[in-house]
Design a protein around this nucleic acid. Structure first.
Lengths: 198, 198
DNA sequence: GTCTTTGGCTAATGGTCATTAGCCAAGGAG
DNA sequence: CTCCTTGGCTAATGACCATTAGCCAAAGAC
C-alpha cells in the first residue's frame, strides 16, 4: 500500500535525521537516505528540493521547537528559581526526548548554508538570551548567587546539549530522572537559595 | 628559507586542525589544507600518509593530553573537593587554551575510522571514569551531596566541552575567570559542602 | 475509456576528491 | 664534482556525489 505524500516526506525526513546524527551531514549521501526509505537516491527529489533543504528543515524545526517550549515553560510563574528550573527541565527533556534532532541541531551548523544558517543562528541567539535573562533576573531578585550570569547561562545550556550526546532511556537513567537532576544542577550552578545538595 | 621537516609537519597539522574545526573533517579537502600551508594538496602526502592520519593524530593527541593533565591535577592532594576542583579546572583550561583541539576532538569522532577510533574512545572512557570516580569518592567521604554521581560527572564533563565551542579570551571572559568559575560550577553540581553561592 | 498527474526508475551531467605515479630542482653527503 | 635524497610539482587514476532529464506504470479525475 503506498504511503501518502506527506507521510512519505516524513519518513524521508526521519531517515535523514537518523543518518545525519550517526554519520554527519557531509558523510551521508542521498543514496543512503533513499536506501533507508526503500527508494533510489534521485527519487528523493520528488519530495525535497535538495539535500540542504532536508538539513534546513530539521535544524530550523528543532530550534523553533526549543524556543517555543522555553516560552511555554516560563510563562506561568514569576518566581525566578521556578522559572529557571522549568526552563532547564524543558531544555533537558527536549534533548532527551528528541536527542537526534538536538544532536544534529548542535553538530551540523557548519554544513548549513545561507539563508537557513543565519535563521537558525538567530533563533539560537534568542534562546540563549532567554537563559541569560532568567539568571540575571534571579540575581537581581537576590535569589541567585553567581559571579557571572553569562557563564552560568552557557553552562546550563551546555548541560542539555550533552544529554543529546549520551542519553539513552535504558533504565540506568530515565528521562524523568535526568530532567529532575539536571533541573537541580541548573539551580546549583545559578547558586539559587536553598539549593545546596542536602 | 625552507622549514625543517618536523616544523613543516607541525604547520600542516595546525592548518588541518583549524580547517577541521571551522568546516568539519568531511568538508575540508587536502587542497584546502595544502593551500593553507602554501603547497598543493598532493604534496601533503610527503609528510602525512593520509587525510585520516591527520585527524587521528589530532584526536589521539588531544585525548592523551587530557588524560595526562587529569592525572597530574589530582595527583598531589587527597581532599575530594580539591581533587574535583583541580580536575574540573584542568578540563576547562584545556578546552579554553586548546579550543580547536578540544572542538575537533569532540565533534569529529564520527569521521575517525578504526583502529584510531576505538583508541580515542578508550581514552575518552578512561577520562570519563576518572571524573565519575572523583564524584563517587566525594560522596563516600560525605563531602558531596548529589543523587546521581553518573549524571553529575557527565554534567561536569559537558561544561568543559561547551567552553571549546564559545570561549574567546576577549576580555569579557578571561581564561582564568572561566576556569575559576567552572571549577566552582563543578563543585556546585557535586553538591560539595560549603559551596552554595555565597 | 481516456487523459492527466504522481512518483519511482535509470542514465546522464558536471563536477569533486583522496591518493598515486613520475618528474625534477635544490640541497646535502662524500 | 658526482651521486643521492628530499620535497614540491602536475597529470592521472579510480571512485564518488548532488542533481537533472526523460521514461513509464499506476492511480485518480472526469
Amino acid at each position: 500500500m503506498s504511503r501518502s505524500p506527506s507521510s512519505r516526506r516524513e519518513d524521508i525526513r526521519a531517515a535523514a535525521l537518523e543518518l545525519f546524527a550517526r554519520s554527519g551531514y557531509e558523510a551521508t549521501t542521498m543514496a543512503d537516505i533513499g536506501a533507508a526509505v526503500g527508494m533510489r537516491g534521485p527519487s528523493l527529489y520528488k519530495h525535497f528540493a535538495s539535500k540542504q533543504e532536508l538539513l534546513a528543515e530539521i535544524m530550523t524545526g528543532t530550534m523553533t521547537d526549543l524556543v517555543a517550549l522555553h516560552r511555554g515553560a516560563v510563562a506561568t510563574t514569576t518566581d525566578p528559581a521556578e522559572r529557571l528550573r522549568r526552563a532547564a527541565e524543558a531544555h533537558v527533556r527536549y534533548h532527551a526526548r528528541h536527542r537526534l534532532e538536538a544532536f544534529v541541531g548542535n553538530r551540523e551548523i557548519r554544513s548549513l548554508v545561507q539563508p537557513h544558517r543565519e535563521r537558525v543562528l538567530a533563533l539560537r541567539a534568542e534562546y540563549e538570551a532567554g537563559f541569560r535573562d532568567l539568571v540575571k533576573a534571579g540575581i537581581t531578585a537576590g535569589r541567585f548567587h553567581v559571579a557571572s550570569p553569562r557563564l552560568a547561562s552557557y553552562a546550563i545550556l551546555d548541560l542539555g546539549m550533552g544529554v543529546s550526546a549520551w542519553f539513552r532511556d535504558d533504565g540506568e537513567s530515565t528521562e524523568d530522572g535526568v530532567v529532575w537532576q539536571y533541573g537541580e544542577f541548573a539551580l546549583r550552578i545559578a547558586g539559587a537559595d536553598g539549593i545546596a545538595g542536602y
